[in-house]
Design a binder for these strands. Sequence first.
DNA 1: GCCGTTTTCGGCCCGACTGTTTTCAGTCG
Length: 574
Amino acid sequence: MRNLELARLLNELADLSDYVGESQFKSRAYRNAARLLETMQTPIESLAEQGQEALEAVPGIGKAIAEKIIAYLNTGVIPKHQQLLQLVPEGILEVMQVPGIGPKTARLLYEHLGVHDLESLQNALASGAVLQIPHFGEAKRQRLLRLTELIKKARQRRPLGTVYWLAQEKLHWLQQLPHVQNALVGGSIRRMQETIGDIDFLVATEHPEKVIAAFVQMPGTTEVFAQGDNRAQIFLEGGLQVDLKTVPPVSWGAGMLYITGSKAHSIRLREIAIERGLKLNEYGVWRGTECVARETEAEVYEALGLPYIPPPLRENSGEIERALQGSLPALVTREQIQGDLQTHSRWSDGQDTSEAMAQEALSQGYTYLALTDHVEMFAWQGDVFHLFRQRQREIERLNEQMAGRLVVLNGLEVNIDIDGTLDAPEELLKEAEIVVAGIHYGHGQEPEAMTRRLIRALEHPSVHILAHPTGRRFGKREPNDADWERVFRRAYELGKAVEVNGYTTRMDPPTPIVRILEQSGAWVALGTDAHRASDLRMMTLAVGLAQRGWLTAERVLNTRPLPELRAWLKEVRG
DNA sequence: GCCGTTTTCGGCCCGACTGTTTTCAGTCG
């Protein structure tokens, strides 16, 4: 699957195109195509095999981009991209990453001062050389100096789980401010995107100036990038960007829609508004000067002839068409989850006791919890069977204590070896009530070998769940490649489950592959892979990822009450 | 570069903030 690498290249092509001053609509088309590729479930190479017409049939891909895609798949490069790289030093692209520097400014800097990367930018700013350039004053020099320093620290997107709870804390802080009638975290966090670039807040208030003035004093603020009458942008220590937008309370719904995005979804909605003789902005839906909807998101959608679309679907990746047909899925929710299906305790590499895990599971509102300690951790500590049975007795005692409020399931996580066999004694796996199997070494195999390896593991009679299917770790490891349709189809045939893993640094599989999973019909198990009690809250992330994959409760194993889950666990093993 | 039951040419979402060029371009989300 080469969709993501091609998307990256098209985004870069868009930046280059902006820099050389081609039509902004051209770069928008490139970015649009890149975004299509990022969300597309089908590998672009299989679409290309069906010919250029198949590519051009995708809305947003025309003749020129189809040719670029084919050229890339055949030769590994896009000629136009190569050609622009001849004209533009590569470092210019990172100069354009500095907030406030766009293509025009980058070009001025290069042409006047030869600024070609962050280093030379910093020198030109520090020496004051930039002051010779038209449109440059001292205020701008100081501002860019600070921002260049800031982005050298952090400008990359961060995993959702590393920011999600910080955003909730900051939201709480915002809600306490005077004159704040309502507040919300929007943007990619509300859409539960796997990685986020900034935190976006919306506030409803009658006194925006007072709220803005307080906002820019948020603890941890190192830079106020913009501060106006109803919007502000700040950077926190560590370079995290935080945006605030205020709307009058009456425009709360339109404001929510605006702050949540995605940009592509918003643009599509605004086009629909125009088609219907309306205008959509962050204050409402307008017919001339008359406002026809604004108070709730549902009203705004309704005014555009659409049902409410849940935030995780708002990517303009088919949700609007489905909404028009009235066939949006009823997404699984956190409240429907009855238990966690992958967790670890001190019996393996977890930090907390099984009792602490169980207590936390109770406070999460669960009725069951699968303890799935690693087999090999037992092995390192001594006799596997002995330790397993010791843990089993502990779990039995715990379950007695819990008196039916919560049931801890005696599970195991087992390694899938290079050839797809399981790295554990058969008898041990049979004794475990629930077995999740995952890859922990031997990543990066060829797709065909990886496909066969995963299928073989699924076929093992003791296995219930395929854990963290792609093995990706943010910042460490790219997702493994496999023929996911085949793997998930086999899981479906066997009646087994595939995990959607919410652990902060995993979030596995990535959204496009969750969508393939959704289409396969296979069971889905949501798990946090918790290694301490507090990790159990990551179920919110697992649910978010499932929602982005369009999954409904019917497909998610752990929406089932315990008796049904137990029946399933038995049934799978025949 | 894409797209089309108004169009194969002429459109392409909408608003806010900054700094500096006294009226607006560049940038951002």
